[in-house]
Write a protein that binds this DNA or RNA. Structure first.
Lengths: 339, 339
DNA sequence: CTGAAAGCGCTTACAG
DNA sequence: CTGAAAGCGCTTACAG
């Protein structure tokens, strides 16, 4: 029922080879034939089948992307800039939202393979043995964005989460804070769980601050868990004067919790976030945050992947982007009188 | 280089037909052959090519989605539930983020057609003649989600924006407000521009409230424009005691503007939003909003489209979902003393 | 229950 | 400059 190339050829009175040639902008087609063909295409409303074309060219112009959570501002911003670079280069995105569901990830990785995508982008680091071995076996270029799995042979586009977290903590220390609460992520995550935790811990120790277990909590990066964990921190007898949450969402949850207890940010408690999401400017007080270059992260990810695909360059090491502390209103110098 | 079905057949010592049969779970294959084939698949790491399969079956299991702005919480939430339903039904999503770029939309519509997607979802209503005629001509099922273009022959999954807006305004009137500012959307948009504006206007008139031009502003649905337009409303000599913004994002921008002027929400000015985004619960005070059933909207969109694709049912009318006023903290009864 | 052959809609050497 | 033919990797009647 769909118009196909033979219909166009018949309609124009030429061979399919000729139609194919004008379709692909080849030279060596006389102008009168070319215009006959173009008219036929027009009249028949012909759109060549990419899938037939892919089969013979062995090129699909498809990229598969695995996103942990589409509704997250962080990931959807990265995805948006990935999409931008992809479409600018003639690629389309096959998007999979796994929402913490590992089975879905493996299933989709299989779909990607069967669809013969030319590259795969993963923004997720909770691996299992199946996924690990799948990625090792597959011949399609795979790149991780914003996360870094343990294995050295996977390529990531990331920031240095350890140093970023270290510097965020040091900033609070420099403001005079002694007791700094920490709301970490999932310790099964290398990047955003373990590395950010170590950064906090080492910054504290290097500056002779006591690291106390009751000041250390862990959430799931979302607003709600920031709220819950902050509730715990506020129940401590000598509550912290500053809190560092490893995601802006959790930091906002923490701020809301503080406010709901009739305490003020930053007068009573300073709050520091991490990521640089859109929300930092949207809440009041605005949120001081250790920011990742989110947009750039997407762009660079796509550019590196494109190079891998074209075979120009096989990256062997991670691409590490610059983090940046953006000071806004939610942190202030410790008011000694207040404690 | 990729392993193909002939390799598997050779390795297992059977015909490609047989391999194809076990791949597709057909009966009529003896157990010993079946296990031979399965072993060969295993050993060779064979993954059948969907694109070859699509060519012969004339079925791609692909859905094309056009999103106006991936970074918007509203659209990414719909997209997320669309993805959920799609993958549950064996479909993958080809996602295009057009970011207000009409040319990109037409280009992507073409890509969708060439990729032979089985259905197209559009969450965007800024049409031009090319797009309109393209959609009319194409034989692929198209469905609009959360928006309703002018033409009657396109199917949409929406709420009744006019009534929702009418009721939101009436709620503010019932709280005793006389002067109600309005921050509308783009008047080129039927759904979220014109209909919501008419709802506001008619609710005002039906309740004998004066509709004054200076109280009516228009933004682009984003936080920043809500802030800017609120600034204008605050500069009016007799400023409104309540403001209704037709997106939660703009409402939040308005709240921030009010706060930055050292006024309080809702004591000095009540603020009402629209959409039911995640932010409503995230800001302080929490935002009263006329909510759309965002998740359901995605689910229903996909379900209706799936029916269209399977030919079970060709919807001829829009699917209208229920809106719901969710009262939170940002609106209060007008305090007469205050004015 | 199994296999040889045609065909899906294109592109690309190969001849002319 | 143009076309006939082979082939991309599968599935599906058709025979047996």
């Amino acid at each position: 029922m769909q118009v196909k190339i033979t219909d166009v050829a018949k309609h124009a009175g030429v061979s399919v080879t000729t139609v194919s040639r004008v379709l692909n902008g080849e030279r060596y087609v006389k102008d009168d034939l070319k215009s006959k063909v173009n008219r036929a295409i027009q009249e028949l409303g012909y759109a060549p089948s990419q899938i037939a074309r892919s089969l013979v060219r062995k090129k699909t112009n498809l990229i598969g992307v695995i996103v942990p959570d589409l509704t997250s501002s962080f990931y959807s911003t990265i995805l948006s800039s990935i999409e931008d670079r992809a479409s600018a280069n003639g690629y389309s995105l096959l998007v999979c939202n796994i929402s913490e569901n590992i089975d879905k990830e493996l299933k989709y990785l299989n779909v990607f393979q069967e669809m013969r995508v030319e590259g795969i982008i993963i923004m997720h680091e909770k691996m299992n043995e199946d996924i690990r071995s799948f990625i090792h076996k597959i011949k399609i270029p795979v790149i991780f964005s914003s996360v870094k799995p343990l294995e050295q042979d996977f390529v990531s586009v990331i920031i240095d989460d350890y140093i970023a977290s270290y510097e965020a903590t040091r900033y609070l220390i420099e403001l005079g804070h002694e007791t700094i609460g920490f709301i970490g992520g999932d310790m099964r995550d290398i990047t955003s769980g373990q590395n950010r935790y170590s950064g906090y811990r080492n910054a504290m120790e290097d500056n002779d601050k006591r690291v106390m277990d009751e000041y250390i909590r862990f959430g799931d990066y979302k607003v709600k868990s920031g709220y819950e964990q902050m509730k715990e921190l506020l129940s401590i007898e000598r509550r912290p004067t500053a809190v560092f949450a490893v995601s802006d969402d959790m930091a906002i949850g923490a701020m809301n919790c503080i406010r709901d207890r009739n305490l003020r940010v930053p007068e009573d408690i300073s709050v520091m976030g991490f990521d640089g999401s859109l929300f930092t400017e949207l809440v009041r007080p605005t949120l001081t945050s250790m920011e990742q270059p989110i947009q750039q992260m997407g762009t660079v990810t796509m550019d590196v992947l494109l190079k891998q695909i074209s075979g120009i360059e096989i990256p062997t090491t991670d691409v590490v982007l610059e983090h940046r502390l953006v000071v806004r209103e939610s942190c202030q110098r410790l008011n000694k009188d207040h404690v």
